[in-house]
């Protein structure tokens, strides 16, 4: 059932992309609605400023609109293509390809930790998440980017590989090393 739903979603996405490639502005608008959050958050995590994130997000979608004729459908990778454009724009902005998670953990964990209505387990989860994110920030840039794309943005191995310009196997190995480093750093919290 779940596989059928995924296939249907994939078919719908493919049809949207093909229509957008043919110049259908409504189809591009639907793709925009679908991927704006992903692109915006990716950029915001990298630059740590909303005005700059807005500028770079606008440029990402404008560039995508102009270049959609060049996009070749290879599965569910349209979001990855957009993030690749965003990644290049951020790199151009900073004149450096090194990944940096610019947003502070407090901003990412936008959860109020005070107040009588907050359940105790939510507070504990938030504290653990905070520690995990701090540990992520201490990873090397490649491991950091891999973890953020895979787990915070929920992208697949293939999509992460496309964005980072590596093969899926290399991303798998990078993710493994990143998690081992995180496990080492978070040993007392996870014990």
């Amino acid at each position: 059932m779940r596989e059928d739903a995924q296939e249907a979603e994939c078919g719908e996405l493919r049809a949207l992309v093909l229509r957008a490639k043919a110049g259908d502005s409504d189809a591009f608008g639907t793709l925009y609605d679908r991927y704006l959050d992903l692109v915006y958050r990716y950029i915001y995590f990298r630059v740590g400023s909303h005005p700059l994130a807005e500028d770079l997000t606008s440029e990402t979608f404008l560039r995508a609109l102009r270049r959609i004729g060049d996009f070749t459908w290879q599965g569910r990778d349209f979001g990855a293509w957009l993030v690749t454009i965003a990644r290049n724009l951020v790199a151009d902005h900073f004149k450096s390809g090194r990944y940096r998670l610019e947003v502070s953990t407090a901003e990412v964990l936008d959860v109020p930790l005070e107040g009588a209505h907050i359940p105790e387990n939510a507070v504990v989860t938030a504290i653990i998440n905070d520690r995990v994110l701090r540990a992520v920030r201490d990873l090397n840039p490649e491991q950091q980017e891999c973890v953020v794309l895979r787990f915070l943005h929920g992208l697949s191995l293939a999509e992460t590989a496309l964005i980072m310009g590596k093969k899926s196997g290399a991303i798998k190995a990078l993710q493994f090393r990143a998690i081992r480093s995180l496990a080492r750093a978070l040993k007392p919290d996870l014990a």
């Binding site: 704006l36 958050r41 901003e107 936008d110 915070l152 943005h153 998690i179």
Partner: peptide, 19 residues
Amino acid sequence: LLRQLTDLGDNLPLGPGPD
């Protein structure tokens, strides 16, 4: 840790999205 990270992605309110 993998579960923790997956939960992080699934449930984390990732700060304010676009205005």
